[in-house]
Every structure is written in C-alpha cells, then in structure tokens.
Simulated scan of single mutants.
Amino acid sequence: MTATVDRVITDTAFVVRDVDLTDGTLLVLSERPSELASPQLVTVRGTVASFSHRALADRYRLGPAGPYRNFEKGRALVAQEVTVWD
C-alpha cells in the first residue's frame, strides 16, 4: 500500500494515513529501522496481523504501550519492505 506517514512512534513503528483505510490510519511495524518523518509518502509491502503490544513489543522494539493503545486488538501491517518517496 502507498500512504502518507501520519506519525512516527519509534524507528520500527509508525502510523500511516490514507482515505482508503477503514479507520483512516494503520499501524506499521518493521524489524528494520527506518528514518521517516511526517508527511512523507511511503509504500509498504507486508502482511496484516492482529496487534497486541504485549506479544509484539520485544520483536519490534516498540517501547511503552501508551502510543499503541488505539491500535490494541486491531490490525497492524507487518512490513517486509518500506520504500520512502522523495
């Protein structure tokens, strides 16, 4: 999917915004750190998964649970590839 970076939580977790998304935003997780900033345009390829901070925090180095509360038990995109457009 191609969307705009809404906010960066960590270098491995960020939120994208697009009108075609059900809630308007989607959490993206990546094992590889990315240097992103809002409002960059990104293309992300990956797999949609159920989000649980407890289950995914260590693997994706998510940090404290606070910024993820709105995504808990919702969907997240586990990125295999992130392309940043200039």
Rank of each mutant, 00 (worst) to 15 (best):
33 P>T: 07
11 D>E: 15
51 F>G: 06
44 V>C: 03
31 E>A: 08
4 T>H: 09
75 R>I: 01
3 A>V: 13
45 R>F: 08
57 A>S: 14
19 V>L: 05
83 T>E: 12
65 A>L: 12
86 D>E: 13
74 G>Y: 04
59 R>A: 14
56 L>W: 09
46 G>P: 07
25 T>E: 07
47 T>F: 10
81 E>P: 02
19 V>P: 05
47 T>P: 05
34 S>P: 00
10 T>P: 02
10 T>E: 02
42 V>Y: 11
49 A>R: 09
3 A>M: 09
81 E>R: 15
78 V>Y: 03
55 A>V: 15
65 A>D: 15
80 Q>L: 15
79 A>V: 01
36 L>I: 13
43 T>N: 15
60 Y>V: 08
39 P>T: 11
49 A>Q: 10
52 S>P: 08
47 T>I: 14
77 L>S: 03
29 L>G: 03
7 R>Q: 10
50 S>N: 05
71 F>R: 03
50 S>I: 01
64 P>A: 00
85 W>P: 06
30 S>V: 00
81 E>Y: 07
5 V>W: 10
76 A>V: 15
20 D>E: 08
77 L>C: 11
47 T>K: 12
69 R>W: 00
33 P>G: 13
25 T>I: 06
54 R>C: 11
13 A>I: 05
3 A>D: 10
64 P>S: 01
47 T>N: 10
57 A>C: 09
